[in-house]
Design a protein around this nucleic acid. Structure first.
Length: 683
DNA sequence: GCAAGGTC
């Protein structure tokens, strides 16, 4: 007889097995399990792959609406999941006791609960709970000597979360799709508790940008000469509202020398960066390499599967010493380009990382394992790996020191300011070198009372700028800040919004399409809670009550259903209008997305990407076709076409970009088959 | 065909 231990993922099962004693890995029904057998205990340790069970629509009929009858069922489309469930069911038959050892958070509680209830046969009540906050030997052993009762409230809260998200998300998505269908068209549309507010953030920003009225202001810059060194200073008021005021200052100062009035000279400490959690890594990779958060996660996962880095889907910014700094660092020293950096670290007396505040129930921050890559990493993999290694090393570096000098200069009673910023001690920056952003600004040596020759003084008209567009990194940061979505799903949600064509990439970040606006508009009118973060707040509050036992899951869900049905009733009433509105938005978007540029033949129409009705193939045609223009051009049928907005230098027909796979290079071609550039290629 | 949440 043995104790069956249920874990959330293979990596955790392995760690737990190692912590509990000498373990052997066995194959059972096509999946790996671990056995630990000694005089005190006999454990069989099995693992899930995240959720093995999820919610299903009982009717399984996608045209039923609204759908309110849900059931928990195996995640059937994944054959690995089915194998895992079968193996666990087998092992449960001969088990004398059960330990729930999934991550100690809400989703982990649900994962273990479903397995114990559905795969093991109602064993949740009798199972004991291992509670650990990181997968270190010590914590795992501790949690097994102090096993707790299962937390029904937490499991119930988690299960309710699944229900609420499904009921709201699926029904409102079906409502959108139906309204579009009601005017005879089809398109995949969706909305949900996280998609809604995320899209709304972008819509609000877009509105701020469009409604921004630029206000003029003037800046006054003077240049001073100190022993042949010229430096610039700004008038103390950074924005002067009136041109007359600026003019008066210039008139009073022009040709007048300045006197150094005041000097402050301060040192400031720049602590090392904290180690990466997934959000920090995604942001940094976007800012440095312009990688989308989803792509960065995919690369990190690949590196993790090659054992080069630790588990990437973590929110922790901490590096406990139990990960074994020495082993990692000596491993990295075997990789040529890091050996010198590592020896710098090893000369330190003690290795102590700078850590951030955020923690994670199951994992430390992302760190390199020190394993030397066996295969050559691809370009982007190498960049992300290098970033993670250097960030890890930098976290152990010394605090850097910078020196800030601020001077004020008096010119006939008007005050100008100049600042210098230099690095006096590089510290950790050496370790993080290509990725450090520190702009030095030097001033000549100045003393109080120094007389400075006024070299020039100018005023320049500027305009207040609209707020920045969100980009993929900053909208992810906004989601983190507003606490919607999770570390594992935020990147997915953003890419869903792109896939639905609600968001589009544009210069300077991302923009909301007409379709995105139409969806938010109709939701704001009929189901405002789905596009506001209040829904998450209310849900969290109610689920906390469920967890503590002061509210029933059933009544929370019933209330939500009532609110939903109220929204849907008015939605259905206006179905045709909403459909028409979405339709016009979709047409506007596609029309815009397919224009390549002015037609070089008739010079009246626009060359557009169109699809042949008969062959369904895409090609380029002139919008002035009806007016008699016969300009056409073939297009490659595979790959995605990018509009460059540029014209061929040889023939002035539009240039297009073709991308065959994500992350591959864009192939730039002139669409004109008779272009001279092609003739040259063949001769 | 729809959500959000795990993980590979």
């Amino acid at each position: 007889m043995y104790t069956l231990v249920v874990c959330e993922k293979p990596a955790a099962a392995r760690r737990i097995a190692q912590a509990l004693g000498e373990s052997t890995e066995l194959r059972h029904g096509g999946i790996s399990i671990f056995e630990v057998k000694n005089s005190a205990h006999h454990y069989k340790i099995c693992t899930a792959l995240g959720h093995l069970y999820g919610l299903n629509d009982v009717t399984k009929n996608k045209s039923v609406y609204p759908v309110l009858d849900l059931e928990w069922a195996p995640v059937a489309k994944n054959p690995q999941v089915i194998r895992a469930i079968n193996a666990i069911s087998e092992l449960a038959k001969d088990a004398s006791s059960f330990v729930h050892a999934c991550d100690y958070d809400q989703e982990g509680e649900v994962i273990g609960h479903s397995i114990l209830q559905y795969a093991c046969g109602d064993k949740y009540a009798e199972a004991l709970r291992a509670k650990f906050s990181t997968l270190t030997d010590e914590e795992i052993r501790d949690s097994f000597t102090n096993l707790a009762k299962p937390n029904w409230g937490l499991a119930e809260a988690g299960r309710s979360r699944h229900m609420l998200d499904f009921i709201y998300g699926v029904n409102l998505s079906r409502a959108l799709i139906r309204s579009f269908k009601s005017i005879g068209r089809y398109r995949n549309l969706s909305i949900g508790r996280v998609q809604g507010p995320t899209l709304a953030f972008a819509v609000n920003r877009e509105m701020e940008i469009r409604l921004h009225i630029p206000d003029p202001y003037w800046i006054i810059t003077a240049e001073f000469d100190k022993d042949g060194q010229i430096f610039s200073a700004q008038y103390e008021k950074p924005k002067v509202d009136k041109p007359a005021e600026a003019k008066a200052i210039i008139d009073a100062c022009v040709g007048r020398n300045g006197t150094v009035n005041n000097i402050s000279d301060k040192e400031s400490m720049l602590p090392p960066p904290v180690p990466f959690n997934i959000g920090d890594l995604q942001r940094e990779a976007y800012n440095l390499f312009k990688l989308s958060p989803g792509y960065t996660l995919a690369i990190a996962e690949k590196l993790y599967l090659q054992a080069l880095i630790s588990y990437p889907r973590t929110s922790s910014q901490k590096l406990p010493s139990s990960i074994g700094y020495d082993k990692i660092i000596s491993g990295l020293s075997k990789i040529g380009k890091y050996s010198q950096l590592v020896s710098m670290l090893l000369s330190k007396e003690k290795l102590v990382p700078n850590e951030g505040r955020m923690t994670d129930p199951a994992h430390p921050a992302i760190y390199p394992t020190g394993v030397v890559p066996r295969h050559k990493l691809s370009g982007l993999e190498l960049r992300v790996y290098d970033l993670i290694v250097r960030r890890f090393l930098a976290a152990f570096g010394d605090t850097a020191v910078s020196r800030h000098i601020n001077v004020t200069i008096d010119v006939s009673g008007y005050i100008f300011k100049a600042g210098g910023m230099t690095l006096t001690y590089e510290g950790w920056m050496v370790l993080y070198k290509p990725y450090v952003r520190f702009n030095q600004r030097k001033l000549p040596k100045l003393h109080k009372g120094d007389l400075l020759r006024n070299w020039s003084i100018e005023m320049e008209e500027k305009f207040t700028q609209p707020p920045y567009r969100y980009n993929q990194a900053s909208i992810l940061a906004k989601m983190e800040q507003e606490k919607i979505g999770t570390k594992a799903t935020r990147a997915d949600i953003i890419s869903t919004l792109f896939k639905r064509n609600y968001l589009a990439a544009c210069k300077g970040g991302l923009e909301v399409t007409d379709l995105g606006f139409a969806v938010i508009d109709s939701m704001r009118e009929f189901a405002p809670s789905i596009v506001s973060t209040n829904m998450t707040r209310l849900m969290e509050e109610q689920l906390a009550n469920v967890e503590q036992g002061s509210a029933h899951s059933m009544s929370v869900i019933e209330q939500a259903v009532d609110r939903l049905l109220e929204s849907l009733a008015s939605f259905i009433e206006k179905e045709d209008d909403i459909g028409a509105q979405i339709n016009s938005a979709v047409s506007a978007d596609t029309a815009q997305a397919s224009v390549l540029g002015q037609c070089p033949l008739c010079k009246k129409g626009q060359l557009c990407i169109v699809r042949s009705r008969t062959t369904q193939k895409r090609f380029v045609g002139c919008s002035n076709y009806v007016g008699g223009c016969k300009a056409t051009a073939p297009l490659p049928q595979k790959g995605s076409i990018r509009i460059t907005g540029k014209a061929c230098l040889e023939c002035s027909w539009p240039l297009i970009g073709v991308v065959f796979a994500r992350g591959t290079k864009q192939w730039r071609i002139c669409i004109n088959t008779h272009c001279i550039s092609k003739k040259r290629d063949t001769t």
